[in-house]
Design a protein around this nucleic acid. Structure first.
Lengths: 346, 346
DNA sequence: CCTACAGTCGTAAACGTTTACGGAGTGCGT
DNA sequence: ACGCACTCCGTAAACGTTTACGACTGTAGG
């Protein structure tokens, strides 16, 4: 089966009618449509996407840009694979397909995205790992490609994003720990250059003040959000003269390294140090003692992202008028053993 | 910047010449080519992929089909993200782009692939998770889409694949354990219905015989190749009346669950039970005691897959004439503490 | 001076679709 | 008998490229 022309010849009707029949246009006899659909099925005809895209100016493909850096592989955080399911459940309703675009680690993400956009390989994009200033946002805005980011950015004052509720997590974590008697609560965060590094710590600071606990800069551990970073963080914690009794991790995965370093020094999480994690990372789900952690449904997040994106696309906007411009994604505390002890006043 | 026509008008030369200049054709004045390239750069022109694909009948995109099932997310095994880097390093040389095609968990992989192939969204495919009989192989063969699989299959007698050296691993693992005095060596494997489940156990059986150890069917633990499966396997091992002193895991990740179950019963890996794993899964890399494991470079595997695939594509064949038809991928033993003890004869 | 040829470039056809437009046929009301 | 509306379908033009072909130079060789 070559193309629509062969199908039309086979049916002895015009190519235009075949196209209309296949695309569900109203101006075609139902009997004719039935015959066309049957023949297409029988001959295994599916419209060539290139021809269709060229004519319509759209590809019916949505791109999800991800990083394939060594670090990403090492972290083995299937965040985006999890989100994918939710996205697809939304896209499938509109016959849209999803492709993941892995940016090579040796290529500038901005250049990579530019190439993808220019080649018109996708109609819309979901990008992640947004930086505090991220040129990709300007790029997509200027190119008028509908997009959604996961993570805020300061690059443009208005664009659609969904971000995790870092503030709420810092806040609730402090609240919970303070209620259990902790007064020296450490926190991990990336550099304050990164938007998140700033926001997370500020929320933590405010929560401390609300409980009448003085903010101690030495309890803010600036490390990478990885397993290695967790190890490093534990190391720094153990070096402190007035050792904290609790620590809040900005990334669940860090708990693995943290546990390891603690145990090397005979410090037992959940007994000698309270630990609370954040963000869903299956790798860390079976730690011993189990990690108290703020988690979320990756599937639901994918659904929300998908709806928000389609709401920005003229062709689908009508179905998703209620999808807002942006969103703070709430997380749920899954209580574990890692912070399950009352601190007796020393 | 709309299209090549505007670019041509701007330069006051014909559209054909612009195209030739951009595509590196020889029949264009070097001075002209310079001007065209400069103008394209300045105006940010990049050829529309749909138009190009339509004309040339190829998309310059290679697809890597992956599964986005809940199980895959749960396993958090970034096998394919790791392979991606190697693939891209090969494809980049030919200006080919790689997209990952996540098959929705609620869709039949065969149907999904059929759709992708019919829509001509990619020129070639890499598929994985090949089943013992896998209709996707027939589909791709019939559609004349170049492809490579990771994992063997019985579906066609000849097609290009790369598979991990399961036989060699089973063999060497037994060898190593036997040398350390073990005589009761258990092994985990998927159902013998699965090709791998059969092959792995057969190699194990042959290795046992070579060392004069009788094959005991009760030591073959049929479980899923996941963390859960590891837990289950440990459970079954502990139930055996004549408990084995060593176990070979078909999947590194299982070690996490296995360790957990063992420790629950006070059985210490690396002291009470020797454990050897297999296949690279970053999640399991930091177990305590460290896991002895057969590992490989995902990057190198990606390179090999990429070359093998291009060797099947007429346009690139010439560069990769040496890439063979298929390949057993070797693994390297990374010795850890989990099997580092000599068994004293009881 | 004619021919051959290499170096450049323009012209136009093709790739496979979708869709605006209009035409043929039918039914109906006047 | 005529006009009109409606249903269905065919025609042909676009979408943005690439590329076969031929045309036009200028140069060299006869």
């Amino acid at each position: 089966m070559k193309g629509i022309r062969q199908l039309a010849e086979h049916l002895a009707i015009s190519i235009g009618t075949v196209s209309r029949a296949l695309n569900g246009r109203p101006d075609v006899n139902e009997e004719t449509r039935r015959r066309v659909l049957a023949a297409a099925e029988a001959l295994g005809y599916v419209a060539n996407q290139s021809g269709r895209s060229l004519r319509q100016g759209e590809t019916k493909v949505i791109g999800l840009m991800i990083e394939s850096s060594a670090e990403a592989v090492e972290n083995a955080d299937n965040f985006f694979l999890g989100v994918t399911s939710g996205l697809q459940s939304v896209f499938a309703r509109h016959k849209l397909d999803l492709v993941m675009l892995p940016c090579p680690s040796d290529e500038d993400p901005h250049e990579y995205l530019k190439r993808m956009v220019a080649r018109r390989i996708v109609d819309a994009m979901i990008i992640s790992n947004t930086q505090r200033i991220d040129r990709r946002i300007d790029l997509l805005s200027r190119a008028k490609i509908p997009f959604v980011t996961v993570g805020r950015s300061l690059s443009a004052n208005t664009f659609p994003w969904i971000d995790l509720d870092f503030e709420g997590v810092a806040d609730r974590a402090v609240e919970r720990l303070a209620a259990q008697g902790h007064r020296r609560i450490a926190i991990t965060a990336p550099s304050s250059e990164v938007n998140l590094g700033y926001v997370f710590v500020e929320s933590y600071r405010r929560a401390l003040e609300r409980h009448g606990i003085a903010f101690d800069p030495s309890l803010v551990i600036r490390v990478k959000s990885s397993e290695q970073g967790g190890y490093q963080a534990a190391h720094e914690l153990l070096m402190l003269e007035d050792r904290p009794t609790a620590v809040i991790l900005i990334y669940e995965l860090m708990a693995i390294g943290l546990y390891r370093r603690l145990m090397e020094s005979g410090v037992m999480p959940g007994r000698d140090l309270a630990v609370i994690g954040f963000r869903d990372a299956p790798r860390a789900r079976f730690l011993q003692p189990s990690l108290s952690c703020f988690r979320m449904s990756l599937y639901d997040l994918g659904v929300a992202l998908g709806q928000m994106l389609l709401a920005r696309m003229p062709a689908y906007r009508e179905f998703y008028s209620d999808a807002g411009g942006n969103m703070i994604w709430p997380l749920e505390l899954v209580a574990g053993e890692s912070d399950a002890f009352q601190l007796t006043e020393a």
